[in-house]
Design a protein around this nucleic acid. Structure first.
Length: 504
RNA sequence: GCCCCCAUCGUCUAGCCUGGUCAGGACACGGGCCUUUCAAGCCCGCGGCACGGGUUCAAAUCCCGUUGGGGGCACCA
């Protein structure tokens, strides 16, 4: 039997990172088992539909390296108004893969359920339902449909009037969810609601559409967040009613915010798009997500794994049953590890969009600028935790800096006069250099330190402030060499003037 | 309110199924080395089996309860 799993997002926005972690598990399981990973769009809620989000979801998955074997084809994507549909169209033998393209199928199954006695029409108004719920809450009773229309004589609700179709849940007995991770979870049917299957607008609800699609798309394993456990028995009843074989369920734990609270739009990135914009590498995020709630197990204390190594090792049934808190600290560390492991020329390519977006480097990047960037990259590579950090590490290479104020320039234990002397001597020592390479600059400045009988920190710290406008910078000699003699001398002189003018 | 899930350092986890190795690793944190700043790297340290009962010669590991955390109860997914 070929494993077939799916990711079925609703196009209501950018999927948050907890969902993405579940997608990673699905994808890894499919790849490990040599099966298929299917993308299906669940757009049955017309009120929450956000145009454009289908493309956002697909772009995010592509970026993370989560390729799908079957998914929406060109025509259906175009009908849904997806820009650049050609880029994302995949298609497959069980389409269409967008639910709004499959409405006839759901209606047909809903009608069949009525014929089989497993569903009924209901014309209760939303107002009446709200009133029922209000009463139930007031009496501290379970909140569910009071089954007003369940036992009406056949034909009491005409197929032609506005109505919904509800599942006729057995009043007695139990429904057991066999979960691959948690074992059997038993539900009393009496506690199950007569779920709406088909809405009055003719669209199916999630509960019906998902069962119908999973069945016809021959999905074998449902891997999803454990917030779905309580709704699973209702689906099982539909499978039972239709005489279909249910898939294997595997409910994986949710991902929470660092505080243990539900993932919400708070501090830090929560969606793929945001992680990408903040300078995380897809391979680092993928590695991190795979290890959030799962670990290779005994005898393995590595944490950095390539995509292939993760596929080789992934074991769905070892996934932790407890929820996992997302740790930006650990992700940042891992991102740094990946950044450091990149060949410098590769890192340059990935950094380019960040430099360009900050306006430090022109978009059509000329060769001489590229050469400069190639010299800068090795200096900052091991200092970056996010690609976006490159902006504050290197902006002074590309833009004029304001001469630092006297408060930061003056070397405290030496005083203003000595500080001025150091700046002047530094220029005198650097000016005659024909070769302004890193070694030459280093030799000259170390000589200066010795000549003045000062500490490295005192001289180099001052020059750093004067030439970069910061107290933290890339290594000084390489930095000065890249800035170039002319610029360095100019900035040293500007610092001197700043000091002189501020004194009086 | 009703239903469901979960429980090892602050966080992610190994160990649990097949009871018996000082409960192992990583991130973070503290200290040190290196050092022109910041990083990176190396070394050291801090820190955990939620609690209470059983079962057993022996319990993180098996059973029950308590507490705590999370989730679900829509013409949303």
């Amino acid at each position: 039997m070929t494993v077939r799993v799916r990711f079925a997002p609703s196009p209501t926005g950018d999927p948050h990172i907890g969902n993405v972690r579940t997608v990673v598990f699905n994808w890894l399981f499919a790849r490990r088992m040599g099966g298929q990973f299917i993308l299906r769009i669940e757009d049955t809620d017309r009120t929450r539909y956000k145009p454009g989000s289908i493309a956002v979801i697909m772009e995010g998955m592509r970026w993370l390296g989560l390729d799908w074997d079957e998914g929406p084809g060109l025509e259906e994507l175009k009908r849904s108004g997806v820009a650049e549909a050609e880029k994302y169209a995949v298609g497959g033998p069980y389409g269409p893969y967008i639910q709004s393209e499959r409405l006839a199928l759901y209606r047909q199954v809903a009608e069949e359920l009525i014929e089989r006695g497993w569903a009924y029409r209901c014309n209760c108004t939303p107002e009446r339902l709200e009133e029922v719920r209000r009463m139930q809450r007031a009496q501290k009773l379970p909140v569910m449909y009071d089954r007003h229309c369940r036992d009406l004589p056949p034909g009491a609700v005409s197929p032609d009037e506005p109505h919904v179709i509800r599942l006729r849940v057995p009043l007695t007995g139990q429904t057991v969810v066999h979960d691959a991770l948690r074992g059997d979870v038993v539900f009393d049917n009496a506690s199950l609601d007569d779920q709406i299957l088909l809405k009055s607008d003719g669209y199916p609800t999630y509960h019906l559409a998902v069962v119908v699609d999973d069945h016809y798309m021959k999905i074998t394993h449902i891997i999803r967040g454990d917030d779905w456990i309580p709704s699973t028995p209702k689906r099982l009843l539909i499978y039972q009613a239709m005489g279909w074989e249910p898939p294997i369920y595997c409910h994986v734990p949710l991902v929470t915010m660092p505080g243990g609270k539900k993932l919400a739009k708070r501090a830090g990135a929560t969606s793929i798009t945001e992680f990408r914009a903040q300078g995380y590498l897809p391979e680092a995020l993928f590695n991190f997500l795979a290890l959030l709630g799962w670990a290779p197990g005994e005898g393995e204390d590595r944490e950095i794994f390539s995509r292939e190594e993760l596929i080789e090792r992934f074991d769905l049934f070892r996934v932790n049953r407890a929820p996992a808190a997302f740790s930006y600290d650990k992700l940042d560390w891992m991102n740094g590890v990946y950044i450091r492991s990149l060949p410098p020329e590769e890192l340059l390519e990935r950094l380019l969009p960040f430099w360009q977006r900050a306006g430090l480097v022109p978009a059509p990047c000329l060769e001489d600028v590229r050469a400069k960037l190639a010299r800068i990259v090795p200096l900052i590579q091991e200092r970056l935790r996010h690609l976006s950090d490159v902006v504050e590490w290197t902006d002074f290479f590309f833009v004029e800096i304001a001469p630092p104020p006297a408060e930061v320039l003056v070397v405290k234990e030496l005083g203003r006069e000595r500080t001025l002397e150091i700046l002047r001597r530094a220029r005198e020592v650097l000016a005659p250099l024909m070769d302004f390479g890193e070694e030459a600059v280093e030799q000259a400045l170390r000589g200066l330190v010795e000549e003045l009988g000062l500490k490295n920190r005192q001289v180099f710290g001052l020059i750093r402030w004067a030439t970069t406008g910061k107290d933290v910078s890339p290594p000084l000699f390489g930095t000065l060499s890249i800035l170039g003699k002319e610029e360095v001398l100019a900035r040293l002189e500007a610092a001197e003037s700043s000091l002189l003018s501020s004194a009086t």
